[in-house]
Nucleic acid binder design. Structure first.
Lengths: 205, 205, 205, 205
DNA sequence: AGCTAACCGAGACGGTACGTCTAGTCTTGCG
DNA sequence: CGCAAGACTAGACGTACCGTCTCGGTTAGCT
C-alpha cells in the first residue's frame, strides 16, 4: 500500500483526454502551501509546478495567469464561514466585518492570499477583471444586509446601501493592505458605531 | 556644436564625490515617463536605467528598491494640490476627498503610481515600511480636520477622528484599487452625507 | 520561403525535454566567431548569448563556466590533425611539435583559444581542473612516442619519457604564451637537435 | 596622540603636488595582501583601492593596468634571491631552476603573482608588452650561464644557449601554470641530467 | 480492437529582469 | 598639482522566472 501510495504521489500522469482532478488538487495544495510558508514573494508558477510535481503547461492550461490561480486558492477558503441573517442590523454589520472581511482574513492564510490577488490585479488586467467581478458580486450581496434593515424599519430609509457597504469594505481593505488587521477589534466596534449613527432614523419625523 | 550638444546630453558623468542632481532628475523623469507610457507592468529598474541613460548601480545607490523609487516619483506630484482649512467641516471633507484622494489620483499619473506602490508593498517588506509610514503620517494630519470641527462645536464631540478618516481613506483606496475612480463624484457626495449624518450633534442634549 | 527560412533560423526554441543540438552548435559557433573577431577580451557569456541568439541560462545549463565553453570550442578543432607513428624518433618528435603543438596552434584560431583556456585556469579552479586533466592525458599519450623509440633501441634506454615530453610541451607553451609562435620553425629544429643529443645512446657501452 | 594616530592611519591625504610614497606603498601592500588571502580571482583595482583606502584614480594614475600593478608587486619580491656564478655548469643550472624559477615561485606568494601576470597578459596587450620585455631580459641574462660554461670548455661549444634556457624556462612555466610546482625536486634533477646529456662534449672529437 | 485526441510529467528554449560587481572616467575639496 | 573620496556610465556576472514548445507516455472514447 505504501509503495503504491508513494508512486501515486510521485507520478500522477494522464488519465486520458480530460482534466486530472488529482493534478488540479495537487497544484492548488502546492500553491496554498507556498503562500503559507514563503509568502507572496516566493510564489511563482515555477515554484508551484516544482512543489506539485506538475508540468508548467499543465498549470497554464487551466489557469491563464498567476492571479487566476491565486483567486482559485482564495475561493477554496470561502465555504466555511457563515454570513447569516440575524434580523438585527448591528449584528449583521458585525457579522459582515468579522466573518466576511477582517476576521476572516485575519485567521490563517486568507488575508495573505487576498492581498496577493489585489496586488496582482494592479498590473495584470485579466486579474483585475476577475477580482473586480468577484468583488462586485460580493458587495451586491452584502448590500441586502442594509436593505433588509431598511425594510424592517430599523434604520433611516434614506440610507445609501452601496455607500455603506463600500465604506465597510474600504475600511477592511485598507486595514488588510496596510498590515493592520491584528488588533482591529475595538476599531471594528467604532466603525459599527459610526455606521449606526449615520443610519439612525431621524427622530424628528 | 550640435555634436557637442548631443554628447553633453548623452553623457552626464560624475560631478565629484557627491550626488549628481541631473542624474537624479533624469531617473525620476524616466521612471515617470515609463509609468505613463507603459504602466506598472513595463516598469523595471532596468528599463528606467536604459531610458535615463544611467547605470543601474546609480539607481540602487539612491533608491533601495523599486518601491522607493515609485514613492519618490509619487511624492514629486504632491506639492501642487492644496488642502486648506476652510473653517467648515463639510467643505473640509470634500476638499480632503477631492484634492488629496480621489480627485488627486484621478487626474494624470498619480493614481497609477500610487496603485503601483501599494501593489509593491504587498510583497516587499521595505516598500511596506515606507508606504505605511507615509500613509500613517497623512492620516494623522487629516485627523486634525475632524478635530477642528469638534473644537468649533460643529460636530458631535464624541466622533472618532481616526475612524472617520480611515473610512474616507479606505473608500478612496477601494475605488482606486478596483479601477473605479472615474465617475465617483456623486458617490463622494453620498459619502460626505453619510459622514455628516454620523457626526451630527445629538439634538436631544 | 525566405521569410520562413529566416524565421526558422532566428527562432530555434525547444525540442522537448532534451538538449537541442542546434542551440549547442550555434553557441559553439558564436563563441568561436567572437574569439576570432574580437579576441579573448571581447569574449563574455553575454556576448556569446547575444550572437548565438540564445538565452544565457541555456549556456549556463550546459557549460558551468566560461572556461568549459572555451575548452569545448578548442576540442572542436583537434580532430583534424594527425599524430602518426612514423617509426623514427626524430620524425615523431617533429610531428609532435609541429602537428600537436606549435604548428597546430599557429594556424588559425586554436592558439588563441588555448591561451584563453590557460589564462582562465589561473583564476578559475574548475577550469584548472578541466585543463589539467586534458593536459595530463595528452602528455601521457605523447610519452609513448619516446617509449617506442626506447623499445626500438633507437635511443638511450635510460631516457626519461615524462621529462622529455614536458620539456617539449613547456617550450611550446612558453612560445604560445609569450606570443612567439610565429617564426619558431628554426627553433623547433634546434629543440629537436637538443633532445636527440640528450637521448643519444651511450657509444661507450 | 591616539586620535591623531588614528586619523593618520585612516586618512592619508595629499602631501602636496607630488607623488605620496605612503600611498604607493599602501597600494602595493594591499595588492599583495589580497593576492595572498583571496588569490587572483579576488584581485581587482576596486578591491585594492578599498583595502588601501586609496581612490581608484590614484591607482590608475601610477599603474596603467591591473597587470602593471601585478608586475610591480612581483618585482618587489625579486631582490632577495641570489643567482651567483658558481663556476660549474651543473650547479649554475640547479641554481637557475631553484633560485630563479621553480623554487622561487614555490615559496610564498611569488608563484601566484607571476601566474596572475601571465594570465593577464593573455588578454591585455599592454600587460603582454611589459611581461614579454621582462621575460626577454631575464632569458638574455640567463643565457650567459650557458655561455660561460662554453667558454670554460665545460660543455659542447655547439650548444644553443637560447634554446637551453627556453627549455628550462618552459618547463618551469609549465609546472607553474599546471599547478605542479610542489614535488618538482626530483624532476628538476631529471631535467638537469637531460640538459647535461644534451650538452656533453662529443668525446670522439 | 485499433485509432486518435487530449492530457500528463518533464524540462529545454529564448528572453527579461534581478541585484551585485568591476572597469575606467570625472570632479570636488583638502593639503 | 597630487591626493582621497566617491559619484558617474557602462556593461558583465550568475540566478530566477516567464510563457512557449516538444517530447514520450497514458488513457478514454470513438470508430
Amino acid at each position: 500500500m505504501t509503495a503504491e501510495d508513494k508512486s501515486v504521489a510521485v507520478r500522477r500522469g494522464s488519465i486520458g483526454a480530460r482534466r486530472n482532478p488529482a493534478s488540479q488538487q495537487a497544484i492548488l495544495d502546492a500553491a496554498e502551501a507556498i503562500l503559507r510558508e514563503e509568502g507572496l514573494s516566493g510564489f511563482s508558477i515555477e515554484a508551484v509546478a516544482r512543489r506539485a510535481r506538475a508540468g508548467k503547461p499543465t498549470i497554464y492550461r487551466w489557469w491563464p495567469s498567476k492571479a487566476a490561480l491565486l483567486l482559485d486558492v482564495y475561493q477554496g477558503f470561502k465555504n466555511s464561514r457563515q454570513f447569516p441573517d440575524t434580523g438585527n442590523f448591528e449584528k449583521d454589520l458585525r457579522g459582515f466585518l468579522t466573518n466576511q472581511l477582517i476576521g476572516f482574513w485575519h485567521d490563517g492564510l486568507c488575508g495573505t492570499v487576498f492581498r496577493s490577488v489585489i496586488a496582482e490585479a494592479q498590473s495584470d488586467p485579466s486579474a483585475a477583471e476577475a477580482l473586480f467581478a468577484y468583488e462586485r458580486a460580493r458587495r451586491k450581496f452584502a448590500e441586502r444586509l442594509v436593505d433588509r434593515a431598511k425594510a424592517r424599519g430599523e434604520i433611516d430609509p434614506g440610507s445609501n446601501s452601496a455607500i455603506i457597504i463600500e465604506l465597510l469594505a474600504g475600511f477592511a481593505w485598507h486595514r488588510l493592505l496596510t498590515g493592520r488587521l491584528a488588533g482591529s477589534d475595538a476599531d471594528v466596534e467604532a466603525v459599527i458605531a459610526t455606521i449606526l449613527a449615520a443610519t439612525k432614523k431621524n427622530p424628528g419625523t
